[in-house]
Write a protein that binds this DNA or RNA. Structure first.
Length: 607
RNA sequence: GCGUUGAUAGUCUAGCGGCUAUGACUUGGGCCUUCCAAGCCCAAAACCCGGGUUCGAAUCCCGGUCGGCGCACCA
């Protein structure tokens, strides 16, 4: 069993992840988050909100997961989110049809399926594998189609990313933020892609959760006011240059921006922010790097793009987050399709006087003469030069027809006007997180198998020699079997662990159950996620809680009845302290949220 | 989508044409005055789906579904 299998086995068994529709045999590319998985995922998302909404100040919006056709025409998903495929009629191998005709014609990428089929037939192209005859080319679009409303309805698509919602709402957002750059919005939600062959469990899903942030910035200076907050943070960078050598390097954000490794401060700031987030939710920093997109991999409109990648045992380096400078591409695209200007007006420090040539058609004279063409004539006049307008009979071309306008129908002059500012199409910086992948990364990086005796000795736990005594067994690396003295443990950060504290009466006796239940109630009042467990022996219950990553366990025993203290056990070290039952909820709260040290939570009990 | 390989309780697993399906762990109930899968008693729980061959199929054959791997795909 490799680590992926072990993590998945535990995830399934303990209620983190289940295959969807299992009762009916399942369906690829879909997973259910079980009770603990759902909680863990929500806590990861909640930390994301703390970073982007509370700290960065980019408010959350919620748009429909179904989009209408226009949105995806503008975004380019209808045109380019599909690939023309072409299958061999003999061996059934599928090829990219545009790649097949590339050698024959050099604009292959712009052709549609019909045209591609024609070219394949004309040039008698054959299957690259077996030389068989090729079938017709067809478009395979990765978007799920649906129909809005009854009957033929309106064509709709499940969104392939949440980003478009923020672009489509740009004007509203701009007004909400009173037109002042930079501003941004975020969305956490489901997106859908009809993948041809989803693989790798939760890494590539057909329905997945994204957390995306669109930051609209001034295109002229990409400085970040809080840059110094992260400037000295060190990043592991795998730049385009580094990828040629196959070796990443360490550099501070400041140096990277200065050396132009990272395009500018805003991008640098956001890369560092991503690193802080991933560390916070429990990604191992030594298995994290930022890889720059290669020139041919980057979207043509992007200035610079970095992926946060984490190292996993089975899949190697996997992309978790993409952080891109998308320039004004998206807003321009929506502007074009919607025929609406999407810009932000930026006021100058001082108004500028600008000389310009102004043409003023006299509509009250043009109207009666040109009737319904008057508007077009006026527009045409505005395009003319001073010289042309100076003639007695002015010629304009309207819809291919040459018309004559007499000079009294239009006036023109050089004039000086005061300009207070101008409109800019903001550039967009987009950090885009794949929450499901991060979820898996957190699971894998938290997962560990430990030998209890060794662990106990390491932390100086009393009686440690007893624990390991019975098995003379020496574990070697080749032996992957879990032995009696081993435990599975999820080292979740207490910021994300789906259960924060377990309450365990040592024995199932009423006199111990009552105080235990009292403690449960007090912990719940403090909004802590509590797991009460009185089933089986104490050791078994510790194991169960280790497996779901519960950071602390409170145990009630007969001393509790004598002196009013309980034990608190720390998951990672297995150390225990005794602490008064009164106020225990504050002690636990302090351990989890205030970074209080475990050693000071009470009197050492077993170390 | 092609090829390849697999599928037995919650998990791991035995099975190779005679099954009333093996074992372990787990799980649930109870006992237990003391802390790291301890012990005792009791209980629950499985042959992926559909066809075929056969007196008889978990087992053989075909198709499907799901998982792994390779190729292709992955804005």
């Amino acid at each position: 069993m490799d680590k992926y299998e072990k993590v998945f086995e535990l995830a399934k068994r303990r209620g983190f992840l289940w295959n969807s529709f299992e009762l009916y045999g399942g369906s690829r590319g879909f997973y259910d988050y079980g009770p603990l998985g759902s909680t863990l995922k929500r806590r990861i998302e909640q930390i994301w909100r703390e970073f982007y909404i509370i700290q960065e100040g980019f408010m959350e919006i919620e748009c429909p997961t179904i989009g209408i056709e226009e949105v995806f025409i503008a975004s380019g998903h209808i045109g380019s989110f599909s690939d023309p495929l072409c299958e061999c009629m003999n061996c059934k191998e599928a090829f990219r049809a545009d790649h097949l005709v590339e050698n024959v014609i050099n604009v292959a990428g712009t052709l549609n399926a019909e045209e591609l089929t024609k070219i394949i037939k004309e040039h008698e192209l054959r299957c690259l594998e077996c030389g068989g005859e090729l079938g017709e080319a067809y478009e395979f679009n990765l978007m799920f189609k649906t129909t809005i409303g009854p009957g033929t309805g309106k064509q709709g698509y499940l969104r392939p990313e949440t980003a478009q919602g923020m672009f489509v709402d740009f004007q509203r957002l701009s007004r909400f933020y009173r037109g002042k750059l930079p501003f941004g919005a975020v969305q956490i939600g489901k997106s859908y892609r009809n993948e041809i062959a989803p693989r790798q469990g939760i890494i590539r899903l057909r329905e997945f959760t994204q957390a995306e942030c669109e930051i609209f910035v001034d295109p002229r200076h990409k400085k970040h006011p809080n840059f110094k907050l992260f400037a000295d943070k060190e990043l592991v960078l795998y730049s385009q240059e580094a990828q040629k050598k196959g070796e990443s390097f360490r550099m501070t954000v400041r140096e990277a921006v200065k050396a132009k490794v990272i395009a500018h401060e805003i991008l640098g700031y956001n890369i560092a922010l991503t690193q802080e987030f991933l560390k916070k939710v429990g990604i191992n920093p030594s298995k994290l790097r930022f890889r720059q997109h290669l020139k041919d991999e980057m979207a043509h409109y992007a200035i610079d793009c970095w992926d946060a990648e984490i190292e996993t045992e089975r899949f190697g380096w996997v992309e978790m987050v993409g952080i891109a400078d998308r320039t004004d591409y998206d807003l321009k695209a929506h502007s074009r399709v919607s025929k609406t200007d999407l810009y932000v007006y930026v006021e100058y420090n001082e108004p500028k006087m600008i000389n310009r040539f102004a043409v003023k058609p006299n509509m009250s004279k043009l109207g009666p003469v040109f009737r319904d063409k008057a508007r077009a004539v006026a527009d045409a006049l505005k395009q003319l030069s001073e010289e042309e307008l100076s003639k007695v009979e002015i010629k304009v071309n309207v819809g291919g027809e040459e018309l004559t306008v007499s000079s009294d129908m239009v006036s023109f002059a050089e004039e000086s006007v005061k300009v207070n500012g101008e409109g800019f199409i903001p550039h967009v910086i987009e950090p885009s997180y794949g929450i499901d992948r991060i979820f898996y990364g957190v699971m894998e990086h938290a997962f560990d198998e430990e030998n209890i005796a060794k662990k106990a000795a390491e932390f100086g736990i009393k009686g440690a020699e007893e624990i390991g005594k019975e098995s003379e067994y020496v574990k070697d690396d080749r032996d992957a079997e879990l032995e009696e003295d081993d435990r599975l443990v999820m080292h979740f950060s207490s910021a994300v662990s789906p259960v924060q504290v377990a309450v365990l009466p040592l024995l199932t006796r009423k006199e111990l159950l009552d105080p235990a239940k009292e403690i449960v109630a007090k912990l719940k009042e403090n909004a802590l996620l509590v797991n009460y467990d009185d089933s089986g022996t104490i050791g078994r219950r510790y194991r169960r809680n280790d497996e779901i990553g519960t950071p602390y366990s409170v145990t009630v025993d007969y001393d509790t009845l004598e002196d009013g203290t309980v034990t608190i056990r720390d998951r990672d070290s297995m150390r225990q302290v005794r602490s008064p039952m009164k106020g225990i909820e504050n002690v636990i709260f302090g351990l989890i949220y205030r970074g209080k040290s475990f050693e000071y939570a009470g009197k050492p009990f077993n170390f």
